[in-house]
Nucleic acid binder design. Sequence first.
RNA 1: GCCCCCUUAGCUCAUUUGGUAGAGCAAUUGAUUUGUAAUCAAUAGGUGAUCUGUUCGAAUCAGAUAGGGGGCACCA
Length: 638
Amino acid sequence: MPIVQLPDGKELTYKNSVTGLEIAKDISISLSKKALALQIDGEYKDLDTEIVKDSKIKIITLEDEYALELLRHDAAHVCAMAVQELFPGTQVTIGPVIENGFYYDFAREEPFTDNDLIKIEKKMIEIVDRNDKTTREVWDRKKAINHFKNMGEHYKAEIIDSIPGNEDISIYFHGSWHDLCRGPHLPSIGRIGKSFKLMKVAGAYWRGDSNNIMLQRIYGTCWKTKKDLDEYLHNLEEAEKRDHRKLGKTMDLFHFQEESPGAVFWHQKGWALFQTLVDFMRQKQLEAGYQEVNTPEIIDRVLWEKSGHWEKFQEYMYTTSTPDERTFAIKPMNCPGHCQIYNQGLKSYKDLPLKLSEFGKVHRYEPSGSLHGLMRVRSFTQDDAHIFCTEDQITEESVKVTKLILDIYKAFGFENITLKYADRPAKRVGDDSVWDQSEKALLEAIKASKVDYTINKGEGAFYGPKIEFVLRDAIGRDWQCGTLQVDLNLPGRLDATYVDKDGKKKTPVMLHRALFGSLERFTGILIEHYAGKLPLWLSPVQVAILPINDEHHDYAKEILNQLEKISIRPMIDLRNEKINYKIREHSVGKIPILMICGSKEVQNKTITLRRLGQEAQQTESLEKIISSLSKESQAPKI
RNA sequence: GCCCCCUUAGCUCAUUUGGUAGAGCAAUUGAUUUGUAAUCAAUAGGUGAUCUGUUCGAAUCAGAUAGGGGGCACCA
């Protein structure tokens, strides 16, 4: 006699076991038509799941957020069905739901072409129209493995083999097609509707391991309505316009060229932006008690061997040998250098925490496939620092770093910053007891910072656990920017010591931290974040002075002069062009403020101001504008 | 590094099956002296990424190399 409780608290009593669909019918015919799945005691199940005992249930319809996941999961199945109908012999592997859609990985000798994608999409629509009913069966493990092996589905057989013994092997049927799957699924496949689209084909390693074979991954997007799909596609198009590589070119900020892959040629305007960021950080770090230093670009490999970098990263380091037959590495990191500075002279516990910072340009021979505009380069500038401290100081210093990073990010208006806590990786240096200690300390620090975070298992640095501060680019890709790492290994390896209260020499802890991380990457993120419309203080050209005709040139030059005196970055457009033309060109060029001067302005000693993205004009006295701009162009206070 | 795709004028892009390349913007020159998102005209601009092959003939077909794009893997 199961009693089922509905979300509104109402209870229904049944004599025998009952399915979700039957309950939905009892509530209302319209609900039964909309019903997609079932939530039983918080767990999502198929709509035809038999309920045998008292439980809290909820009928899932398109209105529930979870419906989107169901739709996308089913869409992945439909994609696999379509592929197998069109390309017999293709093996299926996995097809999970991801943000905005799904993907499915296939094993097939021949590559899928863009044309195939169109065919597959058409076939998917056919399958949706067929609207096969979905049924679920639980199979014996051995039977399932043999069954899929006999079908030639070796990857599926392998997956079943790796499912923990206490879990059911559930097989879902959509008509005659079937797949191993955890479920739940829609009652029939046609319920996914037609608001989906296959987006791209890509390679992906079987089980995410680069030692394995490469599969072909088909990415798709799927939505509840056509309107949602169109909106998603439209937003994607808009986001692509914000691509920093595109804006970098049109805004004349930087370029790349094939003679130096992954290295930035900064143009004057891009460099001005870069330098503004450096100035900003320098100021913030001085306020936070850091001492800025500078260390050599090229250091003997002996030091890198000592630090452990050589063993782990040798193939990703640029090296150079000199006529005296020494091998040097071009620094990929600043930490060993900072340790050398720390090691000069005896340090006392009273010196700690000692914070050394550097805008250090580092070089890493990153895999060619990983290069990506400014986001991933082979030569970049870190706003790096190392805090030498005692174990007791780890938490306090870490909390300070976390706050500093978050405050700085907020100054740029970043809303969704993701924090990830990454613990010990497989390949690492140091004893596990030391790792236990440093992981505990960092976890304590992140908890004390009272911020949300996720766990990134096994993704720490080789010398210690880390917190990653992750920002998103225009099209939703995540990039690690800031980082904080607790290191109980390198100071010992690099002979750093301090004299403690008891007169004994001890090894300090080193906190590695970067705020922006890579200045190059952060600049890229910023360009996309602002869609190129940089705030006044960051804009390489802050003001364009546009005289109406050549009678106004002298006055325009006078304005230029006055702006330069208060360290505004102005430009003047003396070309013989119409004012409309000049306004358009400098608006497209994303200059925040246009100053128009004609006869009226010359006569009254005023300026007419027009701001980027606005049509409104504002006429003020030259004096007043100068003083207000001087304030407005300051870096934000944090 | 791996899979797939791309590379044509300074920029954005055409040239449908092989018959030696076009447009818009930008540039240059001239005219125009202009009041809030493109004034008009003329001129110039290309070893079609690079190399090698197939062919009577290659931007177009094949191969290699380089760079780039989308993913995967990597990311001190």
